[in-house]
Write a protein that binds this DNA or RNA. Structure first.
Lengths: 257, 257
DNA sequence: ACAGAAAGCTAACATCCGTCAATAGACGCT
DNA sequence: AGCGTCTATTGACGGATGTTAGCTTTCTGT
């Protein structure tokens, strides 16, 4: 598991847009968000399938996903398990700051762009911007909440519904970061990826995709999902967005101190 | 989902022992640990099956498990899903401090004793004892790591191995909090509980228990597991303790600042 | 346009698991 | 001791999923 070489592209892309409209948005002022963008020391591009950080490898920086999808993976002799997905705006390895070594790999799903912040800088943030530090804690708590929902999904749903639930979650999370979805979600996921996320074989993932098509719920082609009835899809997947803390509960900045 | 009445037993039990030898231990000095014990405003006892905190209920305090086992559960019309277990020394709803409302229930597995800390007090801690605040963040990161392992377990193992993995995890976590296990782990878990943790039916959990017995790996009677070869059990469950960050990685206090 | 590679698809069979039904054992209560 | 309830156990059947194998489609590079 080697870290693949990255192209540093800081000079080519402006970061002063709304790329950081992600998960941290709830708890931070515009000033804080600009402050965080300022922390980013470089932006890198990585190719599909490259490993941005390997399990057990020590690191002295953390990465914010700017564009693309990232998997958390664990590998055994002949299988890969995906335990989570990150979307733009997510800190993909913030916990590496505290734990020093991750228990899983950070893997690019399709081409990605990440912003890098050194742990030295984060130490200063922790000391001097308690509001930002708290927002980072919230972000890791939200990761845990999503993990719990994945556990429930694996315990509760069959393969077809798991895939539907996966895209239902993506739909809502993309909305939460301001990327509204109309009739399609485009991803670079293969059916192998879906299988590794849902804990089924690739062949069974294929059956599930076919079943979603037969049921008229969604059409999935090469990772891209098309539907004209998101509510029906979400109902089929028994999707309940509460766990994403999209509205009220996470907005606790005002009643902290 | 009602919160059942609790017996307040502060006066009957001394807290100045090593009950808080739990997960926070790595990152804190004895002084810090004594400080945390001092935060506890009351100790309560709850009966088996009682709900200590319901999903969506606002709360203004957090609980440290002092004695017993606690489940994180989610319930649908006719099923219950267990997404995690807590052991003595764990903060069971620390994330309620930041999120205000939990997305799941906190449920007693057997009789439990919990120590309560008001969020008002925690706010002060966050401001005045950054070392303790960081330890709390670490604790929630460890929760997330355990969640990821559960996801992997559900994706990877059959029912028999999942149950073995569950007890393998308990064995290691109990060791990490100084409760060394010899030949038996005693729990109040029913086979229904095991089923809800492993995402299988109770009848299939029973088959799995029988299979562990037939294979000579372990004997499980009413939640209590007996074995004379923990290594064989862990190998069977493909258990790898890295995700519990038992030794090095979590001990980062010294190189923080 | 073409070839090779990657991804998607299908069929057949075995295993894992859920459900239903029924029974046996363990525990608490009176 | 006797009763009821909760828990554990077993058998039979069907559905869900894994595995193997082979085939088709789509992408990509030249």
């Amino acid at each position: 598991m080697n870290v693949t070489p990255a192209k540093v592209v800081t000079e080519a892309y402006s970061l002063t847009g709304d790329f950081l409209a992600g998960r941290l948005r709830h708890n931070l002022s515009t000033d804080d968000l600009n402050y965080i963008e300022g922390l980013i020391e470089s932006v890198e591009e990585h190719d599909d399938g490259s490993c941005l950080l390997g399990r057990g490898v020590k690191t002295d920086r953390s990465m914010i996903l700017v564009e693309g999808y990232i998997f958390r993976t664990v590998k055994t002799a002949n299988k890969r398990f995906i335990t989570g997905i990150n979307l733009p705006g997510d800190f993909v390895d913030l916990h590496g700051f505290a734990l020093k070594r991750l228990d899983h790999n950070i893997e690019a799903a399709g081409r990605v762009r990440v912003g890098c912040v050194s742990h030295e800088t984060l130490r200063d943030v922790m000391r001097e911007r308690p509001g930002v530090a708290r927002a980072m804690w919230f972000a890791t708590l939200l990761d845990a909440a999503i993990h719990r929902k994945w556990i429930q999904t694996l315990e509760q749903l069959d393969a077809t519904r798991r895939i539907a639930h996966l895209y239902a979650e993506l739909h809502t999370r993309l909305e939460l970061i301001g990327r509204n979805v109309t009739r399609a979600i485009r991803t670079p996921f293969t059916q192998f990826d879906m299988a590794d996320m849902c804990g089924v074989s690739a062949i069974h993932a294929n059956r599930a995709v076919g079943k979603l098509r037969d049921l008229g719920i969604a059409e999935i082609r090469r990772g891209d999902l098309y539907t004209n009835d998101w509510e029906a899809l979400k109902k089929f997947a028994q999707f309940d967005p509460d766990y994403l803390y999209g509205d009220g509960p996470l907005k606790v900045k005002e009643d902290w101190d």
